[in-house]
Design a protein around this nucleic acid. Structure first.
Lengths: 110, 110
DNA sequence: GAGATAGTTAAGTAACTGCTTGACAGTTTG
DNA sequence: CAAACTGTCAAGCAGTTACTTAACTATCTC
């Protein structure tokens, strides 16, 4: 469980991989399409793809000589839920409540 | 901007650091308190704390001989927003729409 | 079947991470 | 002041990450 979050967050920590994810949320893409905007060699892109697949964020299938990649959004929302749960916990804490109220006050001042 | 996300996600990719964050959303804590559940030396915890501070997820202040750490939730919600924006994009894509409808169907079957 | 296309493997390298132990510094407390 | 407490610095080490280039395989297209 935690191990899964490790890999998900680690995968998202790299700008090249986030760029790949940003492309894939629009729809499936080939390896070359993913590589297009990235300033690196194809083998390097393959390694990033492997990291994303290992994290379960992306799956791919090879048909003929083309590998088509698509996003796997469950791991994405797993990460989202972890973060939002912590933010909510913080909002329910005294520390967070105070900061929230202060924030609301300065918001009004605007 | 992207650089900030790099550090935030990288910081969250480590279980020790997530444990520290989980402690801090409850309220401020000292370095020793953060170290208590972690299976490592104090200097190691300091390094993790440095990573969290570098990412802007945590701030700390030393009073006397005690360093008190507290969470800084803005970076947390920055990461949250990046992920949720991508999930929403995916849901609006044909790929995501299809998967969503399929999901709703299997959900009904239950 | 020759050549272009799309991807893969291998080998090597430079930099970064995550830890350790040991020595040390500043701050209370008895 | 001496001892205990809380944290910090430094050196060093093992393992991982993020690439590179070069060579290769498999698949289409003409």
């Amino acid at each position: 469980m935690n191990h899964s979050l490790d890999k998900t967050f680690a995968a998202l920590a790299d700008p090249a991989r986030r760029t790949m994810v940003e492309r894939l949320v629009i729809g499936p893409a080939t390896v070359s399409e993913l590589a297009l905007p990235l300033p690196m060699s194809l083998p390097a892109v393959m390694l990033h793809l492997k990291v994303l697949e290992d994290a379960g964020l992306v799956t791919s299938r090879k048909e003929g000589r083309v590998r088509t990649c698509r996003i796997e959004p469950e791991k994405l929302s797993l990460a989202e839920r972890w973060v939002s749960a912590r933010r909510i916990m913080w909002e329910n804490s005294l520390d967070g409540l105070k900061a929230y109220l202060d924030g609301a006050k300065t918001e009004k001042k605007k």
